[in-house]
């Protein structure tokens, strides 16, 4: 599916299940996400991660709602626990259906997000490995002087921002000197289109969700 359409659909579903409390809707969303992930041949480990990571928050909220809320409702406890899993699996569905580059390209061409934002983010994302090592360097060099920089230390953040300031200047200049003009119209080597069936899938999904949410299912 086209990443922009899929993103809109996933966000819509995510917001709607936040405002409704139907366990079955959450479960069906999880099941559909698993099917989509299976189709995209997601590695087994990713299912394990999706099951384990939300486990602690889900169990935590289940106990809080079940024993410490005013109504102590078992139903609502399950709604909240499955909702957390539904969010996580919606994330998995999206992650395995597309890539960051494809999503940004589609946001530029289909959603018409200003190119300054799209290419600025794209440029910055390529810095991730450098950023990881910079954090390590800053902490290591502080440790050599016997100072432990914790994540809440203003100095660690300050030093990171100073590095970010330098990089952003350099990268912006480099991009400009390679011919990038802020928000100028661009031509594309790969034109991203939205196939007609994307709209069909979106409409069916949204109608189906309403059917479940407003059915006698709980």
């Amino acid at each position: 599916m086209n990443p922009t359409i899929l993103l809109i659909l996933v966000l819509f579903v995510g917001v709607e299940i936040s405002f409704t409390s139907v366990i079955w809707a959450n479960v069906i969303i999880i099941a559909i996400s698993v099917l989509v992930m299976l189709r995209h041949r997601a590695p087994i480990l990713s299912y394990v991660r999706l099951l384990l990571v939300p486990l602690i928050p889900a169990v935590g909220i289940w106990f809080s709602i079940r024993y410490f809320s005013t109504a102590q409702s078992v139903h609502f406890a399950w709604v909240m626990a499955t909702r957390i899993y539904a969010y996580a699996f919606l994330g998995g569905l999206f992650t395995f259906s597309t890539t960051t580059e494809k999503t940004l390209a589609s946001l530029e061409q289909n959603a018409h997000i200003p190119t300054t934002f799209v290419y600025g983010m794209l440029g910055a994302f390529n810095f991730v490995p450098k950023i990881r090592s910079e954090v390590k360097i800053i902490r290591a060099s502080a440790q050599m002087r016997g100072i432990d920089l914790h994540f809440w230390s203003p100095r660690l953040l300050f030093k990171s921002i100073v590095a970010a300031l330098n990089w952003s200047e350099n990268l912006a200049e480099a991009m400009t000197s390679h011919g990038f003009t802020e928000n100028a119209p661009r031509t594309h080597r790969t034109v991203i289109r939205i196939p007609w069936w994307n709209y069909v899938v979106t409409v069916i999904s949204i109608v189906g969700l309403q059917a479940i949410l407003f059915s006698p299912l709980k």
Binding site: T116, F117, Y119, G120, M121, G123, A124, F125, F127, I131, A163, A164, L165, W167, S168, E169, L171, A172, M175, T176, F180, E182
Partner: peptide, 9 residues
């Protein structure tokens, strides 16, 4: 561009 890059980094 540099603002977007700065904020993203």
């Amino acid at each position: 561009l540099r603002d977007v890059i700065l904020i993203t980094i």
